[in-house]
Simulated assay, not measured.
Amino acid sequence: MEWTLIAVGVVVGGMSGFFGIGGGTMLVPALIFLGFDIKTAIGISVTQMVFSSLYGSWLNHRRGHLNLKEGGLIGMGGFLGALGSGWLLKIVPDIVLETAFVGVVGFALYRFFRSPAEEDPNQEHDLAPWVLFAVGAVIGLLAISMGIGGSILLTPILVGLLHYPLKKAVSAGLFFVVFSSVSGFISLSMTGHIDYMHGIVVGVASLFGVQAGIWLASKTGNKKHKNALIVLYAVILALMLKKIFLG
């Protein structure tokens, strides 16, 4: 079992580093397939996200792809927005949340697709702090209400709507996961839903994958990297549409 978990951790870490995502979208189903119950799988996934997002963000910062000030504003907005997720779930029907999620992802994906892939990664974008904070808050509110980390929403919005450089947007997406995963880890630890042993095994293994994924992303041209992201987002959007219409 341990070697299987190590292999899964490396693969998920690689996708996390390359796409700038937490990895829970792939890890939770994989753990359930291996025999873990859903709550234990979520706890292991959150633990893995803490490892991969912290290490990946450090690597991205060293490469000059992560602006800590801007990423911090987005992350703090997301953290506060997520605090309202419980209230939102109480007053808004599931179908409304799911439709809103599909609408935001669909529109952002369209703008992401239309944005130039070869934009200068060193070009500065003077985005007001309140804009970054507000974007993080909205994503945190919607994403946590849907049970996802938020980077899936953040990257296409940064690139497609705010004209953020692709590599920096991917790095900001992974940094966003730091805030949500640490918050989730603390919450799940307090309620006894963390399997520390298996979580650490998967988390440590994911570090090797993260390093490989970030290295691969740095060697991948913007156009190919963008196309890979579009495929990932399109698959997620299709799965959400299936859930809405087919249950």
Rank of each mutant, 00 (worst) to 15 (best):
G43M: 00
V201R: 08
G136M: 02
Q123E: 15
L89P: 06
A117I: 12
G24C: 00
L162W: 06
G213Y: 12
L166S: 04
A128L: 14
V28A: 10
K243G: 11
V204R: 04
T25M: 04
Y196M: 12
G140V: 06
L97F: 13
L80Y: 07
H225E: 08
H65D: 15
V235G: 08
P93F: 05
T220C: 05
K39P: 06
L88Q: 09
G56F: 01
V104P: 03
H61R: 15
V170C: 03
L207E: 15
M197R: 13
K39C: 12
T4V: 06
L127W: 12
P156S: 08
K243H: 10
Q48M: 10
G106Q: 05
T25D: 03
S206K: 02
H225R: 08
V201W: 09
G35Q: 09
G35N: 04
L80I: 08
L207V: 10
S180W: 03
I139K: 02
A137R: 04
H65E: 15
F245Y: 14
N60K: 15
D94G: 13
A137F: 14
L216T: 15
L66N: 02
L132E: 01
G78I: 01
I194P: 01
D120N: 09
K242H: 10
A100W: 03
V8Y: 08
Q48K: 02
G14C: 08
G150A: 00
S52I: 13
S115K: 07
S181H: 01
V8N: 02
G247Q: 10
A108P: 07
S206V: 01
L174H: 02
Y233K: 06
S171A: 13
L127D: 12
L141E: 02
V210E: 02
M197V: 09
G209V: 09
Y196V: 14
G14P: 12
N60S: 14
A100L: 15
I21K: 02
T99M: 15
L161Q: 10
